[in-house]
Each structure stands twice: as structure tokens, then as C-alpha cells.
């Protein structure tokens, strides 16, 4: 059996063919930067940040719709912190709020139940963005809203799923030899879906946690598995093969697969989730929000699929900084541009 020291040494001294590894998930991007992992790798091992930051892949039509809703007299938009600063075509929700619109940040979607119950005169709209990790939370919210027969609570959904966008990146991105599979998505979906993807695409997948040692071992495994099919799970305390069946059932009750629009990638068939017909009374107008008016010059589209490194964007660190973010990838603390900027990662 190897030791961690041997793995660290091997990753630094690796001198084989170049290996391009994508971390799909924004939380991994942040953990990789925080642990200083890029500097620990041989120049032949390239880590590329993928499209797994929900805030970064939300198209401007969704933000525009939220801004519009927040300006109505009788409506209050509830959102997670990061999304509030992402610009739509003209303004962000933070800009709208500064202009007097009704926008409130919450920590959990579950808080909206109480807010809606206590204030029947207003309609509360939750900006429901997220991947497979977050969709079950919205299902829980709907379960309770349905039980309480709440009529003034709705979701504006822009929900995404991983498998189709991973297929899309493999076909259209910058050449990927292996994937660090998203750990908290896998906690819900199970590692099985990544085994299937590996067989189909002929690329290895390793499910990883967020500690430095786990990430280093994951990268080591992926370098070793280059050119081969296979899935390994290095996050077994949380991720099982089947995932959380109860959560998956809850999602299936309220949502169904749908096409979805991704920032800079266009509409990817079957890459999202929308409310089922029988629950459309909870929808705040999510259908057809496909337009994507990216800010002029922003390269998020190429960054998200690994064709361009954040610092290769001409605006990076000049016009576009975390304090004055031009594009969505610089806004979120899980965004690629944000992380490369604050950590100086190359």
C-alpha cells in the first residue's frame, strides 16, 4: 500500500502524457484552491474547472424574470446570497433591490414557508437554482407548501442535472481525460450514475470528498486511469452506489426532466428539471427562459467548458474583479474566475 507522501511525490514528479482533469463541481473548485493543490501537481497534470456552479450557469433570462417579479407591488423574491449579484441583461437583483424592488436573501429555501404563511398579502417567489443536491430541498419545500395549501409561495426554477452537461462538455469542451465527480451531487444521485457515464464515454470518474488528501488521491487515481473506463468512490462515508432514495423519490414526485439553457452553452436537451404539470400552480413563470445576454467580452462560456483558463480572459483582473464582477463566474465564491482571482491559481 502507498502512503500519502508517496502519492504527493508521484503527482509532483509525474512526467507521462499530459492529463486534463475536470472538477465539475464549484465546491471542489473552491476546495482545490483553498488547499493549494494546483501548485502541488506536475505541469503535465492540468485541473480544469467545469460547469458545476449553479450561479455561474444561470442564463440572463432567469435573472431578468426575477428582477421583473421583484418589482411587482405584491411580490417578494427570495434568493441565496450569491445569485443576488449576478447581472441579468440590465441589472442584478442587488441593483433592483437598491432601486426599491422586493428582494430578500435567505439561508434555506425552507424559510420561505414561514414567510409566506405570515404574510398572505404577498406572493413569495424563491429563485430555485441548483443541481441534484438542491432539487430535493425544493421538493421538501413543495411537500410542505402543498400540505399547508399555501397559495402565495412559488418557485422560479432553473434546475440542472449533471449527466447531460457532462456529455456536452466531453463532446464540445477542451478535451477531458477524467472527471472529479461532484461529491454532494453524488450524495443524492449515488455513484452509480457516474459508473454508467464512464462506460458510455470511455473516461474515468472518481467521486471525491473535499479534504486535501481525498482530492490528491482522487487526482492520483484519475491520472492512473487515463484512457480507461472506471469509477471509484473516495467519499464512501457520504456517497453510496444508489444515493439517497428518499430524496430521489421526493424529486420525482414534483419534478420531471426537461431541456435547460446553460450560460454560454445554449439549450441542452434533458439537462434540467421543471415542475410537473400537476404542480404548475407553484410555478412563477419558469418555462421558456432561454435567452442568454452575456456581458460584452465575458468569456464565461469558454471558461465553463474548459476551453479557456479564467486568466486568459482579457477582462480578468482588469475590468472584472470580485468587487466589480463583470460575469457570473467572478461573482460566486464557487465560480472559476473568482477562485482563480483570489488564490492566484494558474
Amino acid at each position: 500500500m502507498q502512503t500519502l507522501e508517496e502519492i504527493v511525490k508521484a503527482l509532483k514528479e509525474y512526467d507521462g502524457d499530459e492529463v486534463r482533469i475536470m472538477e465539475v463541481c464549484g465546491t471542489h473548485t473552491a476546495a482545490i484552491s483553498e488547499n493549494g493543490i494546483p501548485a502541488m501537481l506536475s505541469p503535465k497534470i492540468k485541473l480544469i474547472s467545469g460547469p458545476g456552479c449553479p450561479v455561474c450557469v444561470t442564463v440572463t433570462a432567469v435573472i431578468d424574470k426575477l428582477v421583473e417579479l421583484s418589482m411587482r407591488e405584491d411580490t417578494i423574491v427570495l434568493t441565496f446570497g450569491d445569485l443576488i449579484r449576478v447581472k441579468g441583461t440590465d441589472k442584478s437583483l442587488a441593483d433592483a433591490k437598491a432601486d426599491g424592488a422586493h428582494v430578500r436573501m435567505v439561508y434555506s429555501p425552507m424559510e420561505s414557508i414561514k414567510l409566506a404563511e405570515e404574510d398572505p398579502a404577498h406572493t413569495y417567489v424563491f429563485a430555485a437554482i441548483g443541481f441534484e443536491t438542491t432539487t430535493p430541498v425544493y421538493a421538501m419545500l413543495l411537500e410542505q407548501a402543498d400540505k399547508k395549501n399555501l397559495k402565495n409561495l412559488k418557485l422560479l426554477t432553473s434546475l440542472k442535472t449533471m449527466p447531460e452537461v457532462i456529455r456536452w462538455v466531453v463532446k464540445n469542451g477542451g478535451g477531458i481525460d477524467g472527471f472529479i465527480a461532484p461529491g454532494h451531487v453524488a450524495a443524492v444521485t449515488g455513484s452509480g450514475i457516474f459508473e454508467e457515464l464512464s462506460k458510455e464515454l470511455g473516461i474515468p470518474f472518481v467521486v471525491s470528498g473535499f479534504e486535501g488528501a481525498q482530492l490528491l488521491m482522487t487526482i492520483y487515481a484519475l491520472v492512473s486511469m487515463k484512457g480507461k473506463t472506471g469509477m471509484k468512490n473516495l467519499y464512501k462515508d457520504v456517497v453510496t452506489y444508489e444515493g439517497n432514495l428518499k430524496a430521489k423519490e421526493a424529486v420525482e414526485k414534483f419534478f420531471e426532466p426537461s431541456d435547460s439553457s446553460w450560460r454560454g452553452m445554449g439549450t441542452i436537451p434533458g439537462s434540467g428539471m421543471t415542475l410537473k404539470k400537476e404542480y404548475l400552480q407553484f410555478d412563477a413563470g419558469s418555462i421558456g427562459l432561454d435567452t442568454d445576454n452575456m456581458p460584452a467580452g465575458c468569456q464565461c462560456a469558454n471558461v465553463l467548458v474548459g476551453k479557456l483558463r479564467p486568466y486568459e480572459c482579457p477582462l480578468f483582473g482588469k475590468v472584472c474583479t470580485p468587487d466589480n464582477a463583470h460575469g457570473a463566474c467572478m461573482v460566486s465564491t464557487e465560480g472559476s474566475c473568482y477562485n482563480y482571482f483570489v488564490s492566484g491559481r494558474k
Binding site: 500500500m1 502507498q2 487515481a221 468512490n233 457520504v238 439517497n244
Partner: peptide, 27 residues
């Protein structure tokens, strides 16, 4: 996650380096 428990954790496996090394055995 976001105010909801999304999974239970297997404490026996938590931070078990040995488990991780077993998984990559032979690579």
C-alpha cells in the same frame, strides 16, 4: 445542505484513510 439533511454519514468510514487507500490499491 441549504437547511435540509440530504444524507446520513457512515461514521465508521468517516476520514478513514485506510479505506481511501484500499479504493486506489494497485493504481
Amino acid at each position: 445542505h441549504a437547511g435540509c439533511i440530504i444524507q446520513t454519514m457512515d461514521e465508521k468510514l468517516a476520514n478513514e484513510m485506510e479505506e481511501l487507500f484500499n479504493e486506489i490499491e494497485g493504481l
